[in-house]
């Protein structure tokens, strides 16, 4: 424990800016993965234990897109669309068969596909780790804001994640499609009776959740090495975020991800050997105080 370092940081604007930005970066990538997870659970009532694999697919598709075109925008599209397509096929062919089944069956199916997806990546891209490298536009010195260090690439990353959060929030609340999705989450039989194709809705929501995880993977690709199985560690933290925020809540995923990011960022200063422990401790406190999570009732 190094409380002096933490208190010293809080007294320095430079440190506060750097660590807050650091927390936002960690949190926003987590949010993109967790929001897909929570969206799928909220509508389909499926706990997608294979969600980390779509983060992995997003990173690898982005790598391929970047290698083919040299454009990071294309890489992002490759990552999101590639993960969405695989997600759609996965949902239609396999996941749709376990709707309404117990969690154990869902877990078994998802875990089997985690292994299959990891091996698929190994076959296509190889077992060795890969690195995309920073796009040329972002190979620039970091910005200094109030003395704190802020890399321009991370500003992009945070902006994209915030834009996604806003689009999702507004889209689900105000668009017709959003209303249909919320209705399907609440009473799928009634929605189906109204002549709406619920299978299409379910497939679309699953694909959207996978696209968000894929986008997170694509955004992380320039700064994180890629290996088969890379989705696992992200999945664990995403579950923590989802549990803290409340299963099914998009706002909960956002707040939960930001809190975890800040806990990691500032916790590494004050509690360098207990940073992971702090995350779990916080999750336990939230669950004890509010078993449904911070925003558990706000089901999308």
């Amino acid at each position: 424990m190094d409380l002096d370092a933490l208190i010293g940081c809080l007294g320095s604007s430079a440190c506060v800016v750097t660590q807050t930005t650091s927390g936002l970066i960690i949190g926003m990538l987590l949010f993109l993965v967790a929001v897909g997870l929570t969206l799928i659970f909220g509508v389909l009532k499926i706990v997608n234990f294979s969600h980390g694999a779509f983060y992995m697919f997003g990173a690898y598709f982005a790598l391929t897109g970047y290698q083919l075109t040299g454009s990071f925008v294309v890489a992002l599209l490759f990552g999101a669309i590639g993960a969405a397509l695989i997600g759609l096929i996965f949902e239609r062919v396999f996941i749709s068969r376990v709707y309404g089944r117990d969690v154990l069956m869902q877990l078994l199916v998802c875990y089997a596909f985690v292994l299959i997806f990891d091996d698929t990546v190994k076959l296509i891209w190889g077992a060795e780790f890969k690195s995309m490298g920073m796009p040329e536009a972002f190979q620039v010195p970091p910005w200094f804001i109030a003395g704190g260090v802020v890399p321009p690439f991370y500003i992009l990353l945070i902006s994209v994640a915030l834009a996604v959060a806003a689009l999702l929030g507004i889209g689900l609340a105000r668009s017709r499609l959003g209303k249909v999705i919320r209705a399907a989450a609440h009473n799928p039989d009634m929605v189906s009776a109204l002549g709406i194709n619920t299978a299409l809705i379910y497939g679309s929501v699953f694909a959207l959740g996978c696209a968000l995880a894929g986008l997170a993977g694509a955004l992380a690709a320039p700064v994180r090495s890629m290996t088969p199985g890379m989705g696992f560690s992200v999945l664990i933290e995403s579950f923590i975020v989802t549990v803290i925020g409340g299963m099914g809540s998009i706002l909960g995923a956002l707040i939960g991800a930001l809190l975890i990011g800040l806990i990691r960022s500032f916790g590494s200063l004050g509690f360098p050997l207990f940073t992971d422990g702090l995350m779990y401790l916080f999750m336990v406190i939230v669950l004890v105080a509010r078993p449904t999570g911070l925003f558990g009732k706000d089901v999308a």
Partner: peptide
């Protein structure tokens, strides 16, 4: 400053910024 990230940790941002501090 001693820093011990986990093996196979995906993100080192907090460690990087801590070392910079």
């Amino acid at each position: 400053s001693e820093n011990w990230p986990k093996l196979f940790q995906p993100d080192y941002t907090e460690t990087v910024t801590k070392i910079l501090q």
